[in-house]
Design a protein around this nucleic acid. Sequence first.
RNA 1: GGGCGCGUAGCUCAGCGGGAGAGCACUACGUUGACAUCGUAGGGGUCGGCAGUUCGAUCCUGCCCGCGCCCACCA
Length: 965
Amino acid sequence: MLEKIFDPQSAEPRLYVAWEKAGAFRPDVNPDGAPYTIVIPPPNVTGSLHMGHALNNTLQDVLCRFERMRGRAVLWQPGTDHAGIATQMVVERQLNERQQKRTDFSRDEFIQKVWEWRHESGGAIINQLKRLGASCDWSRERFTMGDNGEPDDQMVRAVMKVFVDLYNGGLIYRAKRLVNWDPHFQTAISDLEVENKDVPGHMWHFKYPLAGGETYEYVEKDEDGNETLRETRDYISIATTRPETMLGDGAVAVHPKDERYAPIVGKLCEIPVGPKEHRRLIPIITDDYPDPEFGSGAVKITGAHDFNDYQVAKRGDIPMYRLMDWKGALRNDGQPYAEEAQKAQALLSETGTPDENYVDAINLVPDEYRGLDRFEARKRVVADIDADGLMIMVEDKKIMQPFGDRSGVVIEPMLTDQWFADAKTLAEPAIKAVEEGKTRFVPENWTKTYYQWMRNIEPWCISRQLWWGHRIPAWYGPDGHIYVAESEEEATKMAIAKYTQEGYSLEEINDMRRHEHGAAPLLHQDEDVLDTWFSSGLWPFSTLGWPDASEGEGDKANLVNKHYPTTVLVTAFDIIFFWVARMMMQGIHFMKDVPFHDVYIHALVLDEKGQKMSKSKGNVIDPLGLIDKYGADPLRFTLAAMAAQGRNIRLSEQRIEGYRNFSTKLWNAARFVEMNECAVDPDFDPSKANETLNKWIIHELRACVAETTEALEGYRFNDAAGAIYRFTWNTFCDWHLEFAKPILQGTDGPAKAETRAATAFVLDEILKLLHPFMPYITEELWGARADRDAHLIVTSWPTAAGLPLSEEAAAEMNSVIDLITEIRSVRQTVDLPAGEKFPMLYIEDGSAIGKCLATHSDLIERLARLDSVKTIAEADAPKGVALVSGGSTFVLDVAGSVDLAAVTKRLEKEVTKAEKEISVIDKKLGNPKFVDKAPQEVVDEQKERRAGYAEQREKLAAALTRLSG
RNA sequence: GGGCGCGUAGCUCAGCGGGAGAGCACUACGUUGACAUCGUAGGGGUCGGCAGUUCGAUCCUGCCCGCGCCCACCA
């Protein structure tokens, strides 16, 4: 016996364990099936399940369960991401709680601590995914750093091989370039990890005096060439939002066509800050970058601290002076300012590209500013210039400022040595693959976003100055030569070979080693680690066993051949650039094929007000809390039902409650079926049903199967969920079970037996269709209803082809439904007491409904609360409450008085409606253009509709005369 | 500045060339031993505005108004 209600708390863990134990999550439950593969977007090990995860994984699980039931060899490959910065942060925070710092430990010790954390509490999110019901093959769980991060671990080897191969192919290189520097974490970050935000700021206008007190005529003209301003100036006006970077200016640039400054191009001007006796002079140059219309038209060029200036400086061989240290404070190294400034001044007389390392060593921060934080330095610079009388004005202005997405601090463009991947080259085949349709975005419009980004891609900075991550497999020799190899051993071999070839003896090589590092190895490894996304980009093949050679299907560990390319990637749009693009680039390069055929981009889950959920806003809805409260099934169903393509999801708890009610409805339906002894009959053949009722429900089931299946095939989760919801509640429960009651409680043996079997059958099919969305309750019912050979999770998905069409039965039952609905409606209009029963008379008119009326009189009487249903000739029809359904007229033989005015009003309203429709259609049909140009079928359809309404109008009119007085 | 998207019932959203839909909320009534986490019935919308294409537009096109999001180097 089924319990009165379903208890998710106790059932969910039990069922989940049973599935795992049965091996249901492994692809070999369907050993002969075609592969169906999804790699999970690996959540951060530090993560805990949020609503986005819940949606993302629900959709993946729906697909996996659906395809598994369809017989595919489904591999849902799970795992987690080592998430460089995030994880390092978590462990550092723990140290802080114990009054310790990361730097209290050696790098090895710290990394050891991170591994300890990872093994103890990392991966809590995996258990949370299990609570959601995710049917991942956990036996294959992977971590982007491997089991222990050791060089022989396959996940690590994959990363090393990729780096080395790309390096050898010239697609990875080391260079000094301007990068986004996060002063909090003291590492470079990629463009994508920077959030540009509008913040209130200032724009200061300063005078840069011309060298030697020179003057020029400054003239401004309007559009017609008339002079609007003329004055003699001994300065050039410069605007900046970042005065502290003035110290590193290498030039002032103006547009070549800007006549105002033509007289002074090529001359020198003075940076108006720093000790007066050592003020630096910089040249006034031309470049296309400055916009004459903006500000004064003159731009200071600080190549080491601004991305635009960097480009100008590169074009013009302007030295780029780095002003800050890794913490974003003004530099405190090198010689006193006077000497350093002199070095810079000396560069002025040189031509050609300045040596970048020489320039980088120059510290142009005046002694009194050294060591100041950049924002403090800004205040000081402004105050000093102002005191000097060289500030023209300051405006308040909204400025775009870059922030680190993790640290929240202002990002500093910084000139540093970093490793870069040649994204432009890697992107080409990745763009082509989408153009050729090898990978398809669903919904389609995301392809544009993908193209836009890929076509404008910049070199990808892949090095990070962190401790936690894949260490870059590059080693430096005593002479600074770089050896890139998959292991230190190999790099050392390369180095020895190189030095031997250069004529050094083994003795001398050993000397080099001693000289450079005492007893240390010959080489020292690059201190940096790789961007987390560098390894995440390999996820679709590294998790499947690459780079180990695939030994065919017998090799369980290596499924690359069988499961790459994967079938579909399910993710949110905010990760297209970070992750999808990188997987495309790396996947195509190394596997010679796209990583996935489809990319399904789903919505973002927002709160009820349409705001992004975030901890800081405090509007986060915790999915685990909802699972505790309602169970996993209602949450999953809600997310799937709301996952319409291309829309955001505003989640409200009411909605979840509604779908919890749905699961209760299903549960109660199953209880009803059980009580009525509708046992599962394995021999039941739906195509052999005789009873109209059963033929009808199977016909309707067929439509639902088709609709659900097609929707899932097209990633239309909401349509699929809607179809099964409506069929279950509005067709099966509301009508079929009600119709079945008189038969199940009646005495007609064969009809009862067939209805029992058919009802049991349809319920089983509902469980199947619903299983991908609500796996727990359906599995529970499946197991409770009969002794089965297999769990529902591995039971075959229904096919429409396996179910018969029964148009006639469908028409018949639907007309009965219409009639009952009409009677109920009339009863309420006339305010007939719900408990009272009356006879109903059908006025014989030879219609279809009349022919089947007797067959279904039991149903009609019961559901419409009638005494009896009788057929009489029109002439014998008494007066009474008349109603029209299906083109026939019926009379409720009501004893006593009823609210006749209400019935009259109701009928008249229906007449009006019919007349209105008729007149609209007549207008159309009367329009020769319509009749000529519209497709014949549309015209015919309108004619049929007109006829229908015309008949309806007549019957209604006749019914009006039947009302008793 | 470029790109994407959204304005349909009180709320959240489907539909997207020929008959305006769902869930929730609301109102009324609850009878039939699956279900009050329920049943039955009902009210409620000039489908953002204007123009165009079309025999016909909530749906296509253009413009406008309002609102989101993503990308972007204006000092």
